[in-house]
Design a protein around this nucleic acid. Structure first.
Length: 275
DNA sequence: AACGCGCCCTGTCCGC
DNA sequence: TGCGGACAGGGCGCGT
């Protein structure tokens, strides 16, 4: 479940280790993680010999920019991992789908148990389109409480679902959507356009604070997430609602409830978060 | 056309 | 102990 904080942690880890290195070899073991139409030999030919100029994040995506301005966009799906290691053994990975060998030793491994992740190779134009289609970065200056209120006004969908839409806000997944709503004391099934300015201000605050707190703890590992070094994240003990069905609400002690909204679990406190 | 839903995958856990 | 089924949920394609 890599969401924004997990992608950000991976990016920070990889920045220090792979930036400036040259790709010396490309091995694709599971071609179904490549974007439709991207063939293994096409990818290999495109990036072999290229230097990695930067490692960045857009929403939940990790973006490697090469010295010819092409980019490899990595969407981690549910169980994707990007780990740098000196040897395959040191990476402790059992489902390596793609390996990028780097000069000066070591390799960047893309590992994905369920292979829901996707690797996309973008020209500058394709990257521009990709970037444009994604929603606002929740930790950016442009993301204000007023902006959130404007955005939510046009949709009747449950706010939890709305928060998962990457074309609205980029980077929020089910864990942090539920946590943000808990912090804001808003019921996950509330229609997005029913939130008043005070509620969207609280939600804005909840989104930003939970993402920042989770980044500080290097992300949430429920089961599969690993950072750029192959280590687990430290935010799981700080979750207040997600995965805590039946456990007491940290604010009022009422048991946390789990309901299914559009075939996805939503966790909330029935006392603090009323319809 | 916004929105809901089923599907893609594998590992884990739970009940019988 | 073994086995079947539910569940995890990101993103996409499809139907309404």
């Amino acid at each position: 479940m890599p969401e924004l904080p997990e992608a950000e942690t991976i990016v920070r880890d990889l920045r220090s280790t792979v930036t400036g290195r040259k790709v010396t070899g490309v091995e694709v073991a599971r071609s179904d993680v490549l974007a439709p139409g991207l063939r293994p030999d096409t990818l290999a030919k495109a990036i072999r010999g290229r230097r990695i100029e930067s490692v960045d994040r857009r929403g939940k995506n990790v973006v490697l920019r090469f010295d010819d301005e092409r980019r490899l966009v990595v969407n981690l799906g549910m169980t994707g991992r990007l780990v740098f290691a000196e040897t395959p053994d040191a990476a402790r990975l059992r489902h390596v789908a793609v390996r990028l060998d780097l000069d000066r030793g070591g390799a960047l491994f893309y590992d994905d148990i369920r292979r829901f992740g996707r690797l996309t190779l973008c020209t500058p134009e394709a990257w521009q389109r990709f970037d444009h289609e994604l929603g606002i970065e929740p930790l950016s200056r442009e993301f204000t409480a007023e902006r959130l209120h404007e955005l939510t006004r046009g949709s009747r969908t449950p706010i939890r679902n709305w928060l998962l839409d990457q074309q609205k806000i980029a980077g929020v997944g089910n864990i942090y959507a539920n946590e943000a709503l808990f912090r804001a004391r808003i019921h996950p099934a509330r229609p997005a356009n029913s939130l008043d300015p005070d509620e969207t201000a609280r939600l804005h605050d909840g989104i930003r604070s939970v993402l920042k707190d989770a980044i500080e703890k290097r992300g949430t590992t429920v089961s599969d997430y690993r950072d750029g070094k192959g280590e687990t994240g430290g935010f799981e003990p700080y979750l207040q609602a997600y995965g805590r069905e039946g456990k007491p609400c940290p604010r009022c002690g009422t048991p946390i409830q789990r309901v299914s909204i559009s075939n996805r679990s939503a966790f909330f406190c029935p006392h603090c978060q009323r319809m």
